[in-house]
């Protein structure tokens, strides 16, 4: 796919991908480095934390010394990683075709013998590649940290949580891509994609605050992500199937919409 729309997407974003990849490695190294200093004191801090914080980060541990997996689940995979990934994913989904539509370069591509389906397919694969590179760097950083510092973590579980996070990002990205393909406006897709993530996160938090609101978790993408849970228990097949299924539906919707919509009006 060299020098195709797939390649062009990645080339045009290489600086952003490089910066986020370095940030992920740095974050991972910081959190693996400081674990040893906090592992004994952390439970006391969590005992005094408000219920809202637990709803935001997931169930807190009761052990007096927390494991590296739980440490990562609270500090990195509970909120920071999914929020960063959601932001990257929304931008990627809205820009993949939207940037070319806004700038007008899409006409150069569409004037060539390439089908609209192939454009969406290549852009979707490029988004997947972008998210995979950045999430792989997070795993790499943690792996490096486990060798450099006293941080005895299950790298296979970290890999599972990272893959889950990558698919979580992919789902958000494809939701945004489908909105852009339907509407044609990058800004509109950014706004709706952000609302989707924001509302989804509010539902996730509310579902953890009250039993009456528990059913809200089923409509929140954050419930299916559950990075901290995957770090401890390994991959959750049901959650993955839901996210992959939603991604597939959004991808097909993007294909359908982009094929039939007027472009360059």
């Amino acid at each position: 796919m060299l020098n195709t729309t797939f390649h062009i997407y990645l080339i045009s974003r290489w600086k952003s991908i490089a910066v986020w990849s370095i940030c992920m490695i740095a974050l991972a190294l910081v959190f693996t480095a400081i674990y040893d200093s906090f592992k004994g004191e952390f439970t006391d801090m969590l005992d005094n934390a408000p219920k809202l914080m637990e709803a935001m980060l997931g169930p807190f541990p009761t052990d007096s010394i927390i494991s590296p997996e739980i440490w990562l689940g609270i500090e990195l995979y509970g909120l920071l990683f999914p929020i960063i990934f959601a932001a990257i994913a929304i931008s990627a989904g809205a820009s993949a075709v939207g940037l070319e539509e806004d700038s007008g370069t899409i006409e150069l591509v569409l004037a060539s013998p390439i089908s609209r389906e192939r454009i969406i397919l290549e852009k979707s694969l490029a988004i997947l590649a972008q998210l995979a590179i950045i999430s792989a760097c997070l795993w790499l950083g943690i792996a490096m940290g486990s060798f450099l510092f006293p941080f005895d973590v299950s790298l296979s579980n970290v890999l599972s949580a990272t893959i889950t996070g990558c698919i979580f990002g992919l789902t958000i990205s494809y939701v945004t891509l489908a909105i852009q393909a339907l509407n044609g406006k990058k800004g509109f897709a950014l706004a709706i994609g952000s609302c989707f993530v924001g509302i989804s996160y509010i539902f996730y938090v509310l579902s953890g605050l009250s039993d009456n609101l528990d059913s809200l978790k089923y409509v929140s993408i954050f419930s299916y992500y559950d990075g901290p849970g995957v770090l401890v228990n390994g991959l959750n097949a049901t959650s993955l199937i839901v996210m992959v299924g939603l991604s597939a539906v959004c991808f097909i919707a993007a294909l359908y919409a982009f094929k039939r919509r007027d472009i360059g009006v």
Partner: peptide, 16 residues
Amino acid sequence: VEIKKHIGYLAGDISL
């Protein structure tokens, strides 16, 4: 797609 193998196009306000 087949048609575009035989077409060259210059847009009015071309974006590159």
